[in-house]
């Protein structure tokens, strides 16, 4: 009914319209997500942050077609998502459980391609490239459980890359790896994103990570969830773990996101709660309002 918001922007790759999810449980209904509306342009890298239990995983499950929303819809290139779409890949938080322990690393990465009927030669090339990209070309014959946690997550990422999705969803993928591996994986994601030009929605609860990685950060309120704020990250294109993180602008943005999350936790709704985000707004340039 509303003029602009219900209409997905024509150039939107992924478009979430008035999404609501209510879980029906024995203990009554749980409203996990109240009303979410946002668009991702093709080739955008957006981070989604929100307090624990704010429905981030729920949102990803709806976007990836694993679960039907109670209300609203998800559009992928303008087409309504009703089951797992072909051009989407998901990296789950529980990488240990998402890799198949009965298959070697290489077979894990290869399986989705094999299932799609990709010819052998091309499959081999894609798998080699993906393993190379995540720095795991030396362990194709290992089983996943013979690898460290960070390596396992890299296998899961390699599997997603080899699949050549147009949209990549990642659910707190680095929550369980150490700081050094995490920094490496963050840079890996940026490299892959730039190289393949894919659209990435990256869920995290790490504020620094969201600001460092994203071109845009979408902040969710606490459950029942609406969008708290949607800000553009105007950091230089080339990011560097040391340099970018020491930029004054980085600190400002971090402060800003942090504050918003604190507000979200307190249950303070944005003035226009429920109204769809028209797109990222630049955060205040001065540090005055966060001081």
């Amino acid at each position: 009914m509303q003029p602009d918001p219900t209409q997905a922007a024509p150039e939107a790759m992924l478009s979430v319209r008035g999404l609501k999810k209510v879980y029906q449980t024995d203990g009554g209904d749980v409203e996990a997500v109240r009303n979410l509306t946002f668009d991702l342009r093709a080739g955008e890298l957006a981070c989604l942050v929100g307090p624990s239990g704010s429905g981030k995983t729920t949102l990803l499950k709806c976007i990836s077609g694993l679960m039907a929303p109670t209300e609203g819809e998800v559009l992928l290139s303008g087409k309504r998502v009703s089951g797992p779409p072909k051009k989407m890949a998901v990296v789950f938080q529980e990488y240990g459980r998402s890799l198949f322990p009965w298959m070697r690393v290489r077979d894990n990465v290869e399986l989705p391609l094999k299932n799609q009927g990709v010819p052998r030669a091309e499959r081999d090339r894609l798998v080699d490239e993906a393993l190379e990209a995540v720095g795991l070309s030396h362990v194709p014959r290992s089983y996943p459980w013979q690898l460290s946690g960070g390596m396992q997550q890299r296998v899961a990422i390699a599997r997603a890359i080899a699949y050549q999705p147009e949209v990549l969803l990642m659910d707190e993928p680095f929550a369980a790896v150490d700081a050094q591996t995490r920094a490496d994986l963050e840079d890996l994601i940026r490299t892959v994103w730039k190289k393949l030009g894919i659209t990435i929605l990256f869920v995290t609860h790490d504020i620094d990570e969201s600001v460092y990685l994203g071109e845009r950060v979408i902040i969710l309120s606490s459950s029942p969830t609406v969008i708290q704020e949607d800000i553009a990250i105007d950091l230089p294109e080339e990011r560097d773990q040391l340099e970018t993180r020491s930029l004054p602008r980085f600190t400002e943005l971090r402060h800003h996101v942090y504050e918003q999350i604190q507000l979200a936790k307190k249950g303070d709704r944005p003035a226009a709660a429920g109204t769809p985000s028209a797109g990222p707004t630049p955060a205040a340039a001065s540090g005055a309002d966060v001081a």
């Binding site: 694993l66 797992p84 998901v90 789950f92 998402s98 399986l111 989705p112 299932n115 699949y163």
Partner: peptide, 17 residues
């Protein structure tokens, strides 16, 4: 495992696969 099964679904594996 639900996660394993969901992973397979998102990668387009049908029921038989």
């Amino acid at each position: 495992d639900m996660v394993a099964n969901n992973t397979a679904r998102t990668y387009g594996l049908g029921r038989m696969a």
